[in-house]
Design a protein around this nucleic acid. Structure first.
Lengths: 206, 206
DNA sequence: GTAAGATTGTGAATTATTTAACAATATTTT
DNA sequence: AAAATATTGTTAAATAATTCACAATCTTAC
């Protein structure tokens, strides 16, 4: 099992590699990838070492091959199904982000309380009522939920997701939630990230 | 200067502390804070040690005082002004997240290319055309920009922000950008975060 | 008022992550 | 074809982050 940071970086590298491909660039040096991602060439080589890929030396990494190898590590064979829970601004933003991205992650359902959204296709995804969470997760083999609901419903929604057998949750609400060990949880708080920037903006100056 | 992770955690603790305050809870133990944030009591104590606060021992930390002390570390005296660049779904989501939050960060302007948005107040923030970036950042003393524009304009918009003298940028687009050393940059990629979850969901099982 | 118990604060140990250093090797130059 | 150069892969060193372990201290129970 790779370190969390390494997984993140691999995912990011892959995005850049696809861009290289689009530009017709067939090989890339470790220091080029590093520069694109604000880290060092050694770090890049180390990450790539982790996944056991070897370039033909001195020509840089073969872009196509590297994409392939990263895919072998990151992706599941048949892809994973994803649901967006909460089709507000953030839910829709995320969903449109995904559209057109080469990805083995398929957003196949959205859930919302808003009656006017239900049964409609929003940002390319069909929207279901919250009480369908349970059966849809089971029947559609949804393994990951992206939670973009209002803060005050986060805990309750999490419980529903866990009860339905979800395997991973990305929590974008501003409240931390609790899940059993076997569910992978990641929490990201936009306010925190801005407060962090504010701190460094403030303290670098002084 | 505190470690980045510590700053993040402090911001998160503070959020929980405000919630305690609302519930009338006046003191909190390190292990309680830890549980809320999926980390250990030692970690919490270490973080709090970093900022030089001491509880009256054995009663837990005084919630109000701790909020105060974290604020002294994280916040700037007079607060910082923030702009959202790109008032799409994500921009609006973020802006509404901030509204009503006790914060020294004031989102005071939004920028967008869309003519129909310009000069209107959206999610509580006035929206300006992109060509106002330069003068607004200067005249309104905006130090932080949250970039939520389409990927293909990210690099160009970053250049504008930097030229205008921005101090910190949160990049929510899917392409990495380049800034000079004195500008603090944080990049967060939602697709990466979901790919990471997918990896761990996949590999924990096997 | 003494003993037992709970909690903090922190030096030391551990673990994780990053960086340095350099041998190995392929390519280009002369 | 030998020398110079550039790049990778990897061991070892350094740095950073977390956890352990425990003294100090306050509170409660008896």
């Amino acid at each position: 099992m790779l370190p969390e940071r390494t997984v993140e970086r691999l995912s990011e590298y892959r995005r850049s590699l696809y861009q290289c491909l689009d530009k017709g660039k067939t090989h890339i040096y470790s220091h080029e990838l590093a520069e694109l991602h604000h880290n060092t060439a050694v770090q890049v080589r180390r990450d790539i070492m982790f996944i056991g890929y070897s370039s033909m030396q001195r020509k840089g990494y073969d872009v196509q091959e590297l994409i392939q190898v990263i895919g072998d590590i990151l992706d599941s064979e048949r892809g994973l199904n994803v649901a967006v829970v909460g089709m507000g601004n953030l839910g829709r933003a995320l969903t449109t982000y995904f559209i057109g991205k080469r990805s083995r992650l398929n957003i196949i359902a959205a859930f919302d309380v808003d009656q006017t959204k239900i049964d409609r296709v929003i940002s390319g995804v069909k929207c279901y009522p919250m009480n369908r969470i349970k059966d849809m997760i089971a029947s559609e083999r949804i393994s990951i939920a992206i939670m973009t609901v209002p803060a005050d419903t986060a805990v309750e929604v999490t419980e529903q997701l866990v009860a339905a057998g979800i395997k991973g949750i990305q929590n974008y609400t501003t409240v931390p939630v609790e899940v059993p060990d076997e569910v992978f949880l990641d929490e990201y708080d936009m306010i925190t990230s801005i407060e962090k920037i504010a701190y460094f903006v403030k303290t670098v100056k002084s």
